[in-house]
């Protein structure tokens, strides 16, 4: 049983959490995307075998949605943190949009 470190509650068994899949910022203006770009956002996944930035929800706990960096091969979790509308994510958003 993995241990996940909730930024609010600390270390808890992973069974308390729900995984929300890889972190993919929603395009700021979906209407401006053409069908292909939109389908890409909706359906395609990187599905990396390596470190993945992903969402977790503390379902049986505080109800926080937070981000984790997990190696998908070893399940080693190197970081967990709250989502922030920080520069870092807008940088990624631009990449995801492009």
């Amino acid at each position: 049983m993995l241990i996940l470190n909730c930024p609010n509650c600390g270390e808890r068994n992973v069974s308390e959490f729900r995984n929300g899949g890889e972190y993919r910022p929603r395009p700021a203006c979906p209407r401006e995307k053409d069908d292909l770009q939109w389908a890409e956002y909706v359906y395609l996944r990187s599905n990396v075998s390596g470190v993945q930035k992903e969402w977790w929800y503390h379902r049986a706990g505080c109800g926080l949605w937070f981000l984790a960096e997990r190696h998908t091969k070893t399940n080693e979790i190197t970081a967990t943190y709250r989502w922030r509308p920080a520069a870092a994510s807008s940088e990624e958003e631009r990449k995801a949009d492009g």
């Binding site: 729900r18 929300g20 969402w55 929800y57 379902r59 109800g63 926080l64 949605w65 989502w83 509308p85």
Partner: peptide, 11 residues
Amino acid sequence: NEWMQWWMQSG
């Protein structure tokens, strides 16, 4: 609930 929390907690 989870769905709304997700969007609310991410912007």
